[in-house]
Amino acid sequence: MGVTPDDRELLGAYALDALDDQEVAAVEALLERDPDSAREVERLREAAAWIAATEALAPPRDLRSQLFARAKALSPELRVYRQAVARHEALLDSIPESALDASTTNGLSVGDLVVHLAAMESAVAETIGFPQAVTAETDVEARTDDYLREFSADPLGAGRTTWCAATVALDEWSSSGSERASLPWSGLAVGRRTILATRAFELWTHDDDIRVALGRDREAPTEPELAVMSDVAVGILPFCVTSNGETAPAASVRMVLTGAGGGSWDVSLDGREHAGVDVTVTMNVVDYCRRVADRITIDECAARIDGDTDLGHRILACAAALATL
């Protein structure tokens, strides 16, 4: 679609926030398709920001300490969760209606995946009192199916609305509750930290699914996100190795995840103390997260296994169990 001078006539008012919502949407669509307009808006916004600089005024002295008190009160997990939520919202903004039927990695369409996330986020939120709107079902697939039926007319709009409301409820619970607060999830009492990390993990995973379906590049989480997500993903390894009903091996594993946000963990798989580690698995932290999400195969992990090779492979095979929770 071509761009006419008339289309660009709104750019000044846009840079000054002097448009109504419909006009903002029209200009933002224009900016998506016309790099010249996008450059002009950046230039006009910069000019506007310098106009604002003529009004600089020192804030009250205690505002700085108030800000830092709020920043410090924000746990790394809640910060990561909020980042994941905001990034998902931005992604939802960019999904064209025409792409809703595109297939994603896990078999659901883009639209279905948006609804699936609404089903999952609301399931967690319902355990803290979020009103149950669609179903009492807790099985992942059955619950998603119920939501897909309910939201079939408007998966993007209805899915987003429900998902947003659930994230707000979860955020409020996380901001106000005790550090040791926990939720019942998959038969376990799961701590706040783990809940937030796993929600961020699922959002990142499905955001990547959507990006790939839309023909875009996958994105790696930031360093703090990886630090939180990998810590939780390594911590649940003992649960993962027994999730298929097998007995936990009497062994200890050293997970060495390389790259920013990685680290090293010694994990007892049976909960007992061991004199040393039986196997060391070394791999990239993003690859590990993608393996845990079952988005890459063991071969694609390029993991180095030192020690008990069979155990190392079993751990990498079981690590993807998180994806089924």
Partner: peptide, 21 residues
């Protein structure tokens, strides 16, 4: 991005008058 609060302080010191004004 890496969670360094000193960086937040630098930004605040640099731009809080601008934002508040």
């Amino acid at each position: 991005i890496s969670g360094d609060q000193d960086a937040l302080g630098e930004c605040y010191d640099q731009f809080s008058s601008f934002v508040y004004g």
